[in-house]
């Protein structure tokens, strides 16, 4: 902010570039793991095939549908804020977080089912099986686990957005912003949230960036799902 006055100009392109640069580092992080998966798969095709048969396609498909739908409610929340429907935007955000919870509950049930059957990295059951199967399950827990952490992080970010959009915003402006004939009677002007275009703009930029993160987590799952649950 170089201007000395109270005026400030939200820079939507600048903050989006920052967000995307961060997302690129996330793509490279997961990209490295996909590479690891691909190399080990090429080296152990039969073991990977056999191990992936034991993952429940139905759970994976349901979780895919949940995340895709949560992406829809995310963009609807942004669309509603763009159209100045603050309440609707809030509700869509809360629904999005709800889908995140549902996804994680399914993931928890799936993992505990596997662990209950003695399938977890370093378990007695797995050490008795082939190296390929061990690699498959290690990558499965590592990649879906890291993805799950990203879902949790996304939910925290969305929670902050709920708080930010939900709290009523007032800004006190100088009396000189009033029409001249009204200035004599006023001490200050309080601007309500919905009338303050600049605050609105700033919140919208933040919500859009939060949405970008949520969608990236969805994109990563779009690739995780077929690689672990379907390819066999």
């Amino acid at each position: 902010m170089s201007t000395p006055t109270h005026e400030y100009h939200p820079d939507s392109t600048g903050s989006k570039i920052g967000m995307w640069l961060f997302l690129f580092t996330e793509l490279l992080l997961f990209g490295g793991m996909f590479l690891l998966y691909a190399v080990y798969r090429v080296k152990n095709p039969a073991d990977f095939h056999y191990a992936s048969l034991n993952l429940d396609t139905k759970t994976g498909a349901i979780n895919t549908a949940i995340l895709l739908t949560s992406s829809l409610t995310m963009v609807l929340s942004i669309g509603m804020l763009e159209r100045r429907h603050r309440k609707a935007s809030l509700w869509f955000l809360i629904i999005t977080i709800g889908f995140g919870v549902w996804f994680l509950v399914n993931k928890y049930l799936e993992w505990s089912h596997k662990i209950h059957h003695g399938i977890y990295p370093g378990s007695e059951e797995l050490t008795g099986r082939t190296a390929g199967e061990n690699l498959f399950y290690s990558l499965y827990f590592l990649m879906t686990g890291l993805h799950g952490i990203h879902v949790v992080a996304g939910m925290v970010v969305l929670g902050v957005m709920v708080w930010m959009i939900g709290k009523p915003h007032h800004r006190v402006l100088p009396v000189t912003t009033l029409p001249v004939d009204a200035q004599a009677h006023a001490v200050s002007v309080t601007v309500e949230y919905s009338e303050d275009a600049k605050l609105d703009q700033q919140k919208l930029i933040r919500l859009e960036n939060a949405g970008l993160y949520w969608h990236l987590v969805d994109v990563i799952w779009i690739f995780l799902f077929p690689l672990f649950y379907l390819i066999s």
């Binding site: 939200p10 820079d11 939507s12 392109t13 600048g14 498909a61 895709l68 829809l72």
Partner: peptide
């Protein structure tokens, strides 16, 4: 600074994309 701003995307577009995504999931 703000570059050119696009008008809000229609909610119908989002709905269609979502349906396409679900259909592709079923297809895969």
């Amino acid at each position: 600074m703000n570059a050119e701003k696009h008008p809000p995307v229609s909610l119908g577009t989002y709905l269609m994309v979502w349906l396409a995504l679900l259909a592709l999931t079923a297809l895969t």
